[in-house]
């Protein structure tokens, strides 16, 4: 559309439109083998975030790992991944063919792991940015997520900051009393950007046996059901801090993208909605353009934070 500027920036990283994918919900290497179009060449998202990797491989949680709730999805995947070494050896070279900036998501069972992982990626040119997933169960905190503790979050971010000069994103968990305090801790530790939100703690019972459905007992809720929670988090964090925010949590329609941007997001990520339609993101871009035009907004930059008044 003439005169519309959908590009947006995360530091020096230019995105051709604001919609990226959320970690753990789109595996481009797997999907490329299954879906018709060539996904590496015609990637629908403006940046690619693979599934979180950890220092050592993780098997993940015992199944069942998924259960659908009202307009939402509960999952307890348990950060199943092949480990950062295998990722760097097997996946990174293949991802170099991708026509979008690559943001690698890492997590650790210990605070120090964040520095080690960030350091391993520091001089890989395929990697545009590093995202710290602080929702991993932490052995130093009796299995609670490090992202629930401002002090640990700051220290993990510092470790990563010292290990890399790449653009550093900290992905916030909503399962805290004061998400702005956690965001501030990340920025104090050296984060260039925060993303919000990861999944919301939740549980479902089997209607017959009345036992928890998920093998792990409880899990993380995602999808449209959590959008209001996420929107508020993005609003509060972007008002409270001076770094760009990547907004996510239930983004499913072009209207959702518009609202997350207006709430203060510089870019948005789509997760669960990709399970409804793996190529949805690409088509929402046109929808976003129309919605902006109808409202007399001509650029993504002009949309960000519109709700702040």
């Amino acid at each position: 559309m003439a005169g519309m500027d959908l590009t947006t920036r995360l530091g020096a990283i230019e995105l051709r439109h604001p919609i990226m994918n959320a970690s753990g919900t789109f595996d481009v290497l797997e999907a490329d083998a299954v879906l018709q179009p060539d996904l590496l060449a015609g990637f629908p998202f403006s940046a690619y975030v693979p599934k979180t990797v950890t220092l050592k491989p993780r098997e993940g949680n015992v199944p069942p790992r998924l259960y659908e709730t009202a307009a939402g999805l509960l999952n307890s995947i348990g950060l199943a991944n092949k480990g950062i070494e295998a990722f760097m050896e097997e996946d990174l070279p293949r991802l170099a063919a991708l026509k979008a900036p690559l943001i690698v998501s890492v997590a650790g069972e210990r605070t120090a792991d964040y520095g080690v992982c960030a350091g391993m990626l520091a001089d890989r040119s395929e990697v545009a940015a590093v995202e710290l997933n602080v929702s991993c169960p932490n052995v130093e905190l009796d299995g609670r997520a490090l992202g629930c503790d401002p002090d640990r979050t700051r220290r993990a971010t510092e470790e990563a900051r010292q290990a890399t000069s790449k653009f550093l994103i900290v992905k916030l968990t909503p399962n805290v009393t004061d998400i702005v305090a956690l965001a501030r801790a990340a920025v104090d530790g050296g984060a260039d950007c925060v993303s919000a939100i990861n999944t919301v703690h939740g549980m479902a019972l089997d209607p017959w046996t009345l036992r928890p459905v998920l093998g792990h007992g409880s899990g993380g809720l995602s999808g449209p059901a959590i959008k209001p929670v996420a929107l508020r988090a993005v609003y509060l964090v972007s008002r409270g801090l001076d770094v760009p925010v990547i907004g996510m949590g239930g983004v499913t329609t072009a209207q959702d993208v518009l609202e997350f941007m207006a709430a203060g997001a510089t870019a948005v990520a789509m997760g669960t909605a990709s399970f409804r339609d793996p190529l949805l993101a690409g088509r929402l871009v046109g929808g976003l353009e129309t919605l902006m035009k109808e409202r007399g907004i001509s650029s993504a930059a002009g949309l960000t934070g519109r709700s702040h008044g």
């Binding site: 797997e30 199944p63 998924l66």
Partner: peptide, 26 residues
Amino acid sequence: THMACGVGSCQGCVVAAAGGYVKACT
């Protein structure tokens, strides 16, 4: 199994195999 994506993206559909979990969808 319970599935979300059907295309290997979510790791939700796994079953236990001799060498660890495998994805039922792919």
